[in-house]
Nucleic acid binder design. Structure first.
Lengths: 189, 189
DNA sequence: CCTACCGATCGGTAGG
DNA sequence: CCTACCGATCGGTAGG
């Protein structure tokens, strides 16, 4: 790992733990074992670190969902099952970045913020569309509000970075399957 | 509204918008129209503001769920339906405080943090227990993981403060009913 | 990658 | 509720 990669890696841990504003460049430098001023040989500004974390992850979420779209599933259920699995795999592989992505994006400035919100809107839109398709094909309940159904899915997936820890007890494929069953069939016997 | 109440009210708005660390006492004073030093006639410290926001809301969540427990429902479904409704009503009535409660609690210090985490654990535990009861009575699927089912409910409710706005279009009772149907029956036709 | 430093801002206090 | 101020810390730069 180059020093530059190390700086970006350490920033994820620090921003998750203390928040973006609560993390100082001196904290970050200290965790690496150099002086704060030396960070600027690897990074233009503090915000560049935040932008990299957010947009690297957005790219991963996008690739994960494009893989699903490429399958051209006939059933909306299949699309959702696969999309949830791929999303949760990205979260599980990037727990710190996921927490930063969700909690610190509001400190992005100007264009970066716009770009970020665009991504979130587009990404959520794909779930809403999948659900609407499922309703039209009578695959899903016709009294469904696609907006709220999408929020149910996205909320649960987003929250995952707050509690999931790779500890060998449960793997993310199992969790994804169980969440999908909850979304599809609910808890009722 | 007394000045003291005004300070606490303004703190909710500011902490939600800029985060706890990102909000300065000078910002807060400026929004009210006084000098920063004058705030300390009404408040002991910045953290006292955060503690009040978090624990006032925790009290409201607790009262809301105690009302549900007092009903002594025979069905787990009824308990969950009513608990969700009461929880979401508190969120809808306290949108700013709810966002602060969820996003800024990590800046609580020492005992306050412990007390906060205790509350979250106890509160989540009541949902897990309700779900386990429902499974035992064959009201819910017996292959259910009560932990993940509770996370599904709590995630969706927690996320509400991020998107819900009282704008006359949808009232929280409708939303609560639709979320409950999603939790109970899922999206499947 | 470091030393030395900049102007700005922070939470909070003294004293009236 | 204000003026005046404290020591600490912030992101970042100059120059080597």
């Amino acid at each position: 790992m180059t020093r530059k990669e190390q700086v970006h890696q350490e920033a994820k841990l620090l921003f998750k733990e203390k928040g973006y504003i609560g993390s100082s460049m001196r904290d970050l430098a200290n965790n690496i074992g150099i002086e704060a001023s030396s960070l600027y040989n690897h990074v233009k500004s503090k915000e560049e670190l935040l932008q990299n974390i957010c947009f690297d992850l957005a790219d991963q979420f996008l690739k994960a969902i494009q893989e699903v779209n490429a399958q051209k599933y006939a059933n909306a259920s299949d699309w959702i099952r696969h999309a949830m699995l791929n999303h949760l795999k990205v979260v599980a592989d990037n727990l710190e970045a996921s927490a930063v992505f969700l909690n610190e994006w509001r400190f992005l400035s100007g264009d970066a913020m716009d770009k970020y919100l665009d991504f979130r809107k587009t990404y959520g839109g794909m779930y809403r569309t999948a659900i609407r398709n499922g309703v039209e094909k009578n695959e899903f309940r016709k009294d469904l509000n696609p907006n709220l159904a999408a929020i149910n899915i996205l909320s649960t997936m987003n929250w995952t970075s707050n509690w999931y820890q790779e500890n060998g007890k449960e793997n993310i494929e199992d969790i994804s399957k169980q969440f999908f069953d909850l979304i599809l069939k609910g808890i009722k016997a």
